[in-house]
């Protein structure tokens, strides 16, 4: 019984996570400029991945694997924050140098 509930909940979380990923991809595709796209996709991806990690964590239960999942999520958050910043910085510099011209 409990297993069925866990499966249902984690399946639902997976779908929610996928929804955020698809939303992020749509934004990457449709939004007008780099900063807008970045704004949308960094948020949507981190949230979507959070839901997916949560869904998988429900499946693995209390184990070492759970700890690894959390570490993976933290590392990805760290790297994606930095990547977003670097791309934004680059785009900002490009814009500035275009204005000067």
């Amino acid at each position: 019984m409990i297993q069925i509930i866990i499966n249902l909940v984690s399946g639902g979380l997976l779908i929610v996570g996928l929804f955020f990923f698809i939303a992020g991809i749509l934004a990457l595709w449709r939004f007008p400029d780099t900063l807008c796209r970045l704004h949308a996709i960094t948020k949507a991806d981190n949230l979507g991945l959070g839901f997916i990690i949560f869904a998988v964590a429900l499946q693995v239960g209390w184990s070492v694997l759970l700890l690894k999942l959390i570490v993976v999520y933290l590392l990805i958050l760290y790297a994606s924050a930095l990547n977003g910043y670097l791309i934004a910085q680059y785009a900002h510099h490009q814009d500035k140098s275009n204005e000067v011209k």
């Binding site: 590392l75 760290y78 790297a79 930095l82 910043y85 670097l86 910085q89």
Partner: peptide, 14 residues
């Protein structure tokens, strides 16, 4: 880039 440097400092040991 200070952000990149601090990231590298944090992550390279790992």
């Amino acid at each position: 880039d200070r952000m990149l440097r601090s990231y590298a400092r944090g992550i390279v040991p790992f």
